Amino acid sequence: MRVGLLSDTHGLLDPALPALFRGCALLVHAGDVVRPEILDALAEVAPVAAVRGNNDRDPAFDALPETVRLALGALRALVVHDLGPRDRPRPPARPLLARDPPELVIHGHSHRPGAARLGPTLYVNPGSAGPRRFRLPRTAAILTVRGRHAQVAFFELGAGRPRPFGAPVDAAL
């Protein structure tokens, strides 16, 4: 199963995203969409699961949940915008992680792309696909799930086609 991951678009749909996400079974947006048209445009590529971020103030986002649980093949995932520190997650994720820990947590907010394993859980932040902030790269990710194995590949967005960003992260979960 191939899943497109993005977060923190802040009203910008990078023109390279539809091609990057072509062939994905699902797109997961970890919040701070800002403009409802972004989700509509992404839905033309693949079904979209999204959570509300702290900048999603448009009334169109009132129906977006703060968290979403997803089955991604054989893996269970939790999507939340502002996770906080992985070892000390903030509400609303904290009780969900304690009660029924998923194999994957997809989050955003910090604009810092990366993936790290903490115990039995792989935490993935696709970074920010929106306007550049500070000196952070603009990124999105592709998650590939095969059985209980996950691979996350990050891509830097910018002029032209997305370029691989760092080495893919592999995890048996």
Rank of each mutant, 00 (worst) to 15 (best):
L6T: 12
L143W: 04
A115K: 00
L20P: 00
V33C: 13
G158V: 12
I38P: 03
G119K: 10
L83K: 01
L70F: 10
L70I: 07
F155A: 05
A93R: 03
V145W: 00
F134P: 00
L17G: 05
R57S: 11
A171Q: 04
L6H: 03
A74Q: 14
H109A: 12
G114I: 12
R112V: 15
D82L: 11
L39G: 09
A46M: 10
V124C: 08
A116T: 13
Q151P: 00
P101I: 10
E37A: 15
G4H: 02
A50S: 12
H111S: 10
A60P: 04
A159M: 01
P131A: 15
V34H: 06
F21E: 09
L42M: 14
L136A: 13
A153K: 02
A171L: 06
L173N: 02
A41F: 04
P164N: 08
N54W: 10
P89I: 14
P85E: 15
L64C: 07
A60N: 06
G31T: 04
H10Y: 05
V48M: 08
L42E: 02
E103I: 06
L13S: 06
F165P: 01
F21S: 03
A74P: 06
T9P: 02
R2Q: 13
R57T: 14
P102L: 12
L39P: 08
V169H: 01
A129F: 04
P137D: 05
A16P: 05
R146Q: 14
R133D: 05
P101T: 13
D87K: 14
R133A: 03
L12G: 00
F155L: 09
A16V: 02
R88G: 10
G114M: 10
L26S: 09
A153E: 15
L12A: 07
F165A: 12
G53R: 01
A25N: 04
G114F: 09
G127W: 05
R138A: 12
R86N: 01
P164G: 10
F134T: 05
V79R: 01
S110R: 11
A167D: 13
D56A: 06
L12V: 14
A171I: 01
R2I: 03
R163D: 03
P168E: 05
E103G: 14
F154E: 08
N125A: 07
L136F: 09
F134A: 15
A30D: 07
R117I: 13
V124N: 07
H111Y: 08
A129N: 07
R69I: 11
N125E: 10
E66M: 13
R57N: 08
L104M: 11
V152E: 05
N54S: 13
L64N: 06
L104R: 03
I38N: 03
